[in-house]
Simulated scan of single mutants.
Amino acid sequence: MDNGTATAYLDRIGATAPAAPDAAGLAVLQERHLRSVPFENLSIHLGEPIVLAEDALVEKVVGRRRGGFCYELNGAFGALLRHLGYDVSLLAARVHGGGALGPPYDHLALRVDLPEGPWITDVGFGRFAARPFRLDVRDDQPDPAGTVRVVDAGHGDVDALLAGEPQYRLDLRPRELDEFVATCWYHRTSPDSPFTQAVTCSLPTPTGRVTVTDRTLITTEDGRRNEREISTGDELLACYRDLFGIVLDRVPVLSGPRPEVRRPAQAAVASPGD
């Protein structure tokens, strides 16, 4: 990433470069990213390729002003953090849901090593921690989204919990971006993937969250949830444009069957309750 691209990325999320790569600056960058770049799986339902290469991911977020899911969002954010001087590693995680764990490389999270210790920063898991949290701390860590806790899970892995509920299990060995290609392909093609089972676009707001799932608009303000059906394709495109800053020339078409029970993985963070 060059300086011009980094400046455009920071403009995209409404942030400035920290004076030094520290924890306070990392927290601001994560919060601004979460508020600016939607968690969305529209590419899957538009038939667009998902290319796990840093330049392509940054171009999607910055040049095309789109969002993405974990591999895309954390892949791009990791590139920005490295350019800003942070020591970043990619970690693979398995998502908890339905009493079971997802496959290896189910999720991509970022480890950032700072002088005081390692942190996890994550802008690609939908409704999750709003700020980075310490990887080496086993006490409760307060967060605007709820209490975060890291628990040893055996074999060197750890579970990340939010409000007492396990979210994902992290393998602490550093990975390369191309190691996530196979599971990314599974998530964008398999009828068993939560990402093929609903069209989702979601952003936190200062008072809650706004989500479009298929043709349902869900808004949460101060804990009060409202939903309404979007009646036309033109109205749906207007919602993507006005609520998320995403300009499309056609409506995403659901690419997979709707299951009776959806695994509460990343795509489900934008389902009822947001």
Rank of each mutant, 00 (worst) to 15 (best):
P21F: 07
D87M: 08
V88L: 04
E54P: 05
D22A: 13
T200Q: 08
A238M: 14
Y168F: 13
L90I: 05
A92P: 00
T196Y: 04
T216F: 09
Q167S: 11
G68Q: 05
E31H: 14
G63R: 10
A238V: 15
D113P: 04
P194H: 01
L10D: 05
D274A: 15
V123G: 02
R224D: 09
R131D: 08
G146Q: 10
L29R: 02
P272D: 12
F180L: 05
P103M: 08
G97S: 13
P142A: 08
H83R: 13
W185M: 09
A20D: 12
T211Y: 00
I44H: 00
Q197L: 01
V58I: 15
D222E: 11
A23H: 14
A160W: 07
R173D: 07
D214F: 02
R175I: 08
L236W: 00
A145T: 13
E48Q: 12
T211W: 02
Y186N: 08
T205F: 02
L90M: 11
A17E: 10
L34R: 04
L57K: 04
D55C: 08
E227G: 12
R32T: 07
T121P: 02
Y105L: 06
T220H: 10
P252E: 02
G98H: 01
G256A: 02
V261A: 11
R262A: 11
R215P: 00
R224Q: 14
P49T: 01
V199M: 00
L73I: 15
I120G: 02
G14M: 08
G68S: 06
E221G: 12
E179L: 03
P257D: 08
D234W: 09
L80K: 06
V261T: 15
L172N: 06
V150I: 15
D157I: 07
R131Q: 14
A19E: 12
P259C: 14
A130Q: 12
P144R: 03
Q141H: 03
G14Y: 02
V261C: 09
D122S: 01
L135C: 10
W185G: 03
P103V: 12
I230T: 07
R65C: 07
T16M: 15
L170I: 15
C184Q: 01
C184P: 02
P166N: 06
A129I: 00
L101N: 05
F125R: 00
T216P: 04
E221R: 15
L81C: 14
